[in-house]
C-alpha cells in the first residue's frame, strides 16, 4: 500500500492574529477518495496497515509553521473547535518531530477525528489547534 501524504497549508500570520485556525488552514492529501480537500474538514480515506505522513507548509515564506501535535480524539462527539492551545509545555521540541503514523491493522472502519496543533513562532500564544480534520478508515 502506498503511504498517504497529508499537507497542511497554513496562513501563519492570519492564524496568529485571530487566534484560530478556522479559515486559516487548508488540508489536502493525495488519496483520490478523500473528502473535504482544501478545507479544515479533510477526511483522509485510508486502510488499516497504511502509512500516513503529515507535512506543514506556511503560505508566507518567512513565517514559521511546525506541527506541534497530532492527537486522535477518544470519542467523536467533541465539538469542533479551534483556538490557542493553553498547555504548550507538553509539546517538547516540535521542531524535531516527524509525523508519520501507521493505521493499526486491527482498526475498525469508521471516521476518527484528530486534534492538529501547529506552532508558529514562540511565545504563549504561538500554538494553535483545530480538531475538525479526520481520517476515514475503510473496512
Amino acid at each position: 500500500m502506498q503511504p498517504i501524504n497529508i499537507v497542511v497549508l497554513v496562513d501563519s500570520i492570519a492564524a496568529l492574529s485571530k487566534g484560530t485556525l478556522s479559515d486559516n488552514v487548508h488540508l489536502t492529501d493525495d488519496h483520490s477518495l478523500s473528502q473535504g480537500k482544501g478545507t479544515a474538514m479533510l477526511r483522509t480515506v485510508c486502510c488499516p496497515g497504511q502509512w500516513l505522513r503529515w507535512k506543514v507548509l506556511a503560505v508566507d515564506v518567512q513565517s514559521p509553521a511546525v506541527i506541534a501535535g497530532i492527537d486522535f480524539l477518544p470519542w467523536d462527539d467533541v465539538p469542533e473547535a479551534s483556538g490557542v492551545d493553553p498547555d504548550i509545555d507538553r509539546y517538547v521540541m516540535p521542531r524535531w518531530r516527524a509525523w508519520t503514523g501507521l493505521v493499526p491493522c486491527d482498526t475498525p472502519p469508521g471516521r476518527y477525528r484528530y486534534r492538529l496543533a501547529l506552532q508558529m513562532g514562540s511565545g504563549g500564544q504561538s500554538v494553535i489547534f483545530i480538531n475538525s480534520p479526520s481520517i476515514d478508515v475503510l473496512g
Binding site: G69, W96, R97, A98, T100, G101, L102
Partner: peptide, 15 residues
C-alpha cells in the same frame, strides 16, 4: 541539529 523523533510515540522510524 537535534534528535529527530517520530511524533507518534508507538512508532519507531528509521529516519
Amino acid at each position: 541539529t537535534g534528535a529527530p523523533r517520530n511524533g507518534f510515540p508507538a512508532v519507531t522510524l528509521d529516519l
